[in-house]
C-alpha cells in the first residue's frame, strides 16, 4: 500500500524471479503490494485475475511487481503505456477505488514531502521516474481503498469483491489504449 496519503510501502526488490521490465514499447499492467499484508495484496490479485482472462490483448504484459519499491522506475521505464494497481489509504469505503492520472499522485507526493528512500514505495518511484523523464507517456494508477493491511494473508470481502469491476475497467482501458 503506498500511493496516496500512506508512504509505508516496504522497501524490497521482492519480484518474481523472472520479473523484469516489459518489452520496449508494450503496454504494462503492474500490480504492487504484499500478499502477506491483507488488502495490500490487491495489486498481485488483480494481476492474477487479468492474467487468467482470455480477452486480455496479446500485446499487454501483466506483472506482479510485489514490493518493487524504488525499482518500480526500472519496471516502468521501457513501457509505452502503463496501468498500476495498488492499495492506497484514501478515506473511502473499503473496496472502493479511484482511477487516477499519474499527475494527481505526483501532486499528492509533492504535498506530503516524499518520505524516506530507505522505505521507498510507488509514490517515490513515480516522483523519481518523473524527474528522470522515464515514465511512460500514458500512465494511470488504480488506487484501491483497503479495509485492513495487517500481518495476515488474504483479502477482505469488500476488496475481494472489487476485483471483477476493477478488471473490467482496466480491460476497457487496455482496449482503448491498444486500439
Amino acid at each position: 500500500m503506498s500511493a496516496l496519503s500512506s508512504l509505508t510501502e516496504t522497501r524490497a526488490p521482492e519480484l518474481g524471479r523472472d520479473a523484469g521490465p516489459a518489452p520496449a514499447g508494450t503496454t504494462l499492467v503492474l500490480g504492487l503490494g504484499n500478499e502477506l499484508r491483507g488488502d495490500d495484496g490487491i495489486g498481485p490479485a488483480v494481476i492474477r485475475a487479468l492474467g487468467a482472462r482470455e480477452d486480455l490483448p496479446s500485446d499487454v504484459t501483466v506483472l506482479d511487481g510485489g514490493l518493487a519499491g524504488v525499482e518500480t522506475v526500472l519496471l516502468l521505464k521501457d513501457a509505452a503505456r502503463a496501468i498500476v494497481v495498488d492499495a492506497a489509504e484514501q478515506g473511502l469505503a473499503p473496496g472502493e477505488w479511484r482511477r487516477l492520472p499519474v499527475a494527481a499522485v505526483l501532486e499528492q507526493t509533492a504535498s506530503t514531502g516524499g518520505g524516506s528512500w530507505h522505505a521507498a514505495g510507488l509514490a517515490q518511484a513515480l516522483a523519481l521516474g518523473q524527474a528522470l523523464d522515464t515514465l511512460p507517456p500514458d500512465i494511470v494508477v488504480y488506487a484501491v481503498q483497503p479495509l485492513r493491511a495487517d500481518f495476515s494473508p488474504g483479502l477482505s470481502e469488500p476488496v475481494q469483491g472489487a476485483i471483477p469491476t476493477l478488471c473490467e475497467r482496466i480491460l476497457s482501458d487496455l482496449l482503448t489504449l491498444t486500439a
Binding site: 516496504t10 522497501r11 524490497a12 526488490p13 525499482e71
Partner: peptide, 16 residues
C-alpha cells in the same frame, strides 16, 4: 541496486 536485490532473491528467496 536491482542486480544486488536479484542476487539475494536468487539465493535466499527474497532480499528483505
Amino acid at each position: 541496486k536491482k542486480l544486488a536485490g536479484d542476487l539475494c532473491a536468487a539465493l535466499c528467496g527474497r532480499h528483505t
